[in-house]
Amino acid sequence: MSGYGRTEPVVSVENLHKVYKSKRTPFGRPVSVKALKGISLKVYPGEIVGIVGESGSGKTTLAKIIAGIESPTKGRIFVKKPIQMVFQDPFSSLNPRMKVKDIVVEPVEATRKIQKHQRFKLATELLKKVGLDEDALEKYPHEFSGGQRQRIAIARAISIDPQVLILDEPTSSLDVFVQAQIINLLLEIHKRTEAAYLFITHNIPLVINFAHRLVVMKDGEIVEEGNAWETYNTPKHPYTENLISSVPSKIFSLIG
């Protein structure tokens, strides 16, 4: 982490709170859920931060607030733009009525006007960067497999050269081979672009291989944060210890 300390962060959130309130029901008072309880986090240029925690820990809420999709109830937030997000489910994150050539350039068109011939060239280049052929351009999302759709989502996300890329469980709905492909694609893009990655996952063995830093969340709070490899090997917080010891690890000794 020390290597990143000297530069300005690309993401900085301070004392972030998020409360979700349900509507008043005929049966009683509205219920409020504290999804985030005072999160502070800094992410530096080019850093890969793995955010792990179980369902309900607030990982996705944090991601959505950083991406600007939701607003916090309280707290300060600074994000260096452009920022993009890749979602878990590639079946619902792509507009089924749009062709791939339109999907991938959409973020660019939202920021500036582009000529028709540039548009085609840009779309082709983007697909090439994520390992898809030109013939994908005229197709619709439903014509692709889960892994290919995730490639399309990644192409769209990198179209505006984001400073920050939020990846919300981008491989958890994919088979192992496709997962490996997508992870390697993301790492290759990272090498080239040096964007900061916020990688949200529940797959600890996966993320510690490439994350510089690990952030462990539980019930809306960060319970531990540190160098990914050190945190995995010597967790300090009892919750982190429990989480890591729950990883099915017998297999590592058999195939290691």
Binding site: F177, A180, N209, G256
Partner: peptide, 12 residues
């Protein structure tokens, strides 16, 4: 293709 801590992922 199984993610193992300390082993790079192989793409197939």
């Amino acid at each position: 293709a199984i993610p193992v801590p300390g082993r790079p992922l192989v793409s197939f």
